[in-house]
Design a binder for these strands. Structure first.
Lengths: 193, 193
DNA sequence: CAAATAACATACTGATCAGTATGTAATAGA
DNA sequence: TCTATTACATACTGATCAGTATGTTATTTG
């Protein structure tokens, strides 16, 4: 009963996600959001609670989509070494292609909000832990197939690769020379033996 | 001629630095600043121009002090491997000791401002490049002393270590298990052979 | 001491912030 | 068709934002 909604919640959430991803939480105003989402202020509040609630919904949407992407990319390549090098190169290519370096929405949030808001500390941590498990599974697959040496510590190595991926994503925001990131990746991935 | 200044510019700048470091640029208001710096609003504007100018001065103070610290820590230890492992462990210890994880002021700025303000893109990039040179010099010292293998690419390795250090600093904001960061460091520093 | 200068403190500016009150339009069930 | 309900758009709220105008106090120079 009652009037039916005219906007698609998934679509406006996608728009909000893009905006928060670009500008962060504090620098994004409700006016920015209404114009980008194409709906009025009270619609936002009725659908998502408040600004923090909308941000959280946007971040959850991002992390779920991102985790799925990472899983697909790493699982689809039969060669583990190639899977990782292609994955890291894709991350770099995306960042240098776009005019604005948005980086990773989750990492941005880890820096801006996690230290001051436990909800986001947990949310961002769990996303990184999940990615780390995907990395670990991939490395273990490489060990079992014989592509990687059997003695390596898959868990510890996956954690080191996650840390490198984060560092890479962050330093690209300062637009270093391409050689800097290429060198870093080459050296880091030499750990995959 | 005229009344003499009652505040110490270095001291109030130090206070501003601490606040911006904790909260970032957007989340820090002029009211926050006046109360923490202990001076009135017009004094800030006469000494530092505007909010961005104050932030820039604070960041420059930070990066200079930080670069000096890093140089000292890495140069003072005769063993290069030990210098790096102590250095990384110190970074972790500091972050897990304090209640709030401030991380690195420069890295925080790289995420918040560098993508939207070229001045900070350059400033943060140059700081990271400078740290990378300090790392490289240290690695080269290890090669010359015979502690490290002669064939390693000191430049590329130093860049990979910088990337790992950034990733480590960022992920600690989500307070992962200590074992996660310990594993990462152990694996990454295994590149120093 | 008088004039000039500069830092001081208070209080203000218009703009913008997140969030909401209010009235209208559209839908469902009775 | 009437009533209840929900979404809509407009316009408003008090609070806070960055930055400044104004007048006072302290110091130097003549």
């Amino acid at each position: 009963m009652g009037r039916i909604r005219e906007f698609d919640e998934e679509k406006v959430l996608e728009a909000a996600m893009q905006l928060f991803w670009e500008k962060g939480y504090e620098a994004t105003s409700l006016s920015d959001l209404t114009s980008r989402m194409g709906i009025q202020r009270p619609s936002i509040y009725s659908a998502f609670g408040d600004k923090k609630g909308l941000f959280e919904a946007a971040l959850r949407k991002y992390t779920m989509s991102r985790a799925s992407d990472v899983r697909t990319k790493l699982h689809n390549n039969p060669s583990v070494k190639e899977a990782f090098s292609t994955f890291f190169e894709d991350v770099v290519a995306e960042e240098y292609t776009e005019g604005l370096s948005r980086g990773c929405f989750c990492i941005n949030t880890m820096v801006e909000l996690a230290p001051h808001d436990e909800k986001f500390e947990i949310l961002t941590r769990e996303h990184q832990m999940y990615l780390s498990v995907i990395f670990q599974e991939t490395i273990e697959r490489g060990i079992q197939s014989g592509e990687l040496e059997p003695h390596i510590d898959a868990k510890a190595l996956s954690q080191a690769l996650i840390v490198s991926l984060i560092g890479l994503t962050v330093i690209m925001k300062s637009r270093p020379n391409r050689s800097f990131v290429d060198n870093s990746i080459k050296v880091t991935l030499s750990l995959l033996k």
